[in-house]
């Protein structure tokens, strides 16, 4: 699925990576030029931005907490309760906006940690080579084969108190392997280029070569990787929450679905309880993916349709 695309593509793209095309300001200006004319990027970014803004701002206007029993029970959406109420009289809209907040948080923490771990492992393995590469590659392959969600279930089951940041940390620590593989493949191909040899001859340190010479040449790719990880972390978190291993305090979109199914919202026809949280997740992750296609077109001249 879409998570594997960059992995496969990385190897191919690595062969045709541009070795610094033009001065950086001009490249940036050019990217911006195409970015502002790319409908996929604009629509995707717009949806994600709107939902992020909702998650940041709307909770400020919710008077009571998301789990407080505020109204009548099991009410359909109305002017007072925009998304109706749950079986217990909680405001679904309040839960939804607070849930958006935790969804973005878990994506940021999980995606961020996975990106950092994946890049560190990938750069080290690709640049150092030899025994280090062998060992790191072995570790990567092992973690890659282990089904992440099931490992997370086992880990989360033993925790008495679970927070969103901790969930993000765990997700980050299990979902980095494909990034490491892709980054390693690109690093391997870049490390033999002339400009890297030159930097090495001039006596620069390894980490400075990696960060100043190699990483900038794949910066667009790294950014897109982070976006995919962000979306992936959100989906994994939603799965964990749905099984009932969500945050013990607070609310999340996955937890809303868990509660809706547990308390028979399906049988009672209370669609306003289970449609918004899933729609929110789908909209965020789907827009991120579409945004990524747009970014790909912006950064990769071959894909531009003009």
């Amino acid at each position: 699925m879409s998570e594997m695309e960059p992995d496969v593509r990385a190897v191919q793209a690595a062969e045709g990576l541009p070795a610094q095309a033009g001065p950086p300001e001009r490249r940036l200006g050019e990217s911006l030029h195409f970015a502002l004319r790319n409908p996929k990027l604009l629509i995707g970014g717009g949806v994600v931005g709107a939902l992020l803004l909702t998650g940041l701002v709307a909770p400020l206007f919710v008077q009571e907490g998301p789990n407080v029993y505020v109204g009548p029970q099991a009410q359909a959406p109305s002017a007072q309760y925009w998304l109706g109420t749950t079986n217990f009289g909680q405001d679904v809209f309040a839960q939804f906006v607070f849930g958006l907040r935790s969804t973005f948080l878990v994506g940021l923490v999980g995606g961020g940690i996975a990106a950092v771990v994946g890049m560190v492992v990938g750069f080290t393995a690709g640049y150092r080579g030899g025994l280090v590469d062998e060992v790191l590659n072995m570790i990567t392959n092992v973690v890659l084969v282990l089904p992440a969600l099931v490992v997370l279930i086992i880990a989360a089951a033993y925790l008495q108190a679970r927070g969103i940041a901790l969930q993000g940390l765990f997700i980050g620590l299990t979902s980095w392997p494909w990034v490491a593989r892709a980054v390693r493949a690109q690093t391997l191909s870049l490390a033999t280029r002339d400009f890297v040899d030159l930097a090495r001859l001039s006596g620069r340190r390894a980490h400075s070569i990696v960060f100043r010479e190699i990483a900038p040449n794949m910066s667009s790719y790294l950014f897109m990787t982070f976006i995919l990880l962000f979306g992936g972390a959100i989906l994994i978190a939603a799965g964990l929450d749905f099984i009932g291993l969500g945050p013990t305090e607070g609310v999340s979109l996955g937890l809303m679905m868990h509660n809706a199914v547990t308390w028979g919202a399906l049988q009672l026809g209370m669609w306003w309880w289970f449609v918004p949280p899933g729609l929110g997740i789908t909209a965020i992750v789907g827009s991120l993916y579409i945004m990524n296609v747009g970014l790909d077109e912006v950064f990769n001249p071959k894909l531009r349709e003009l």
Binding site: M257, G278, I281, V293
Partner: peptide
Amino acid sequence: YVLTATPYMWLGILLA
């Protein structure tokens, strides 16, 4: 893209 972004359980819930 929207389909792959759909959480498995949510599509299940909708179909059910």
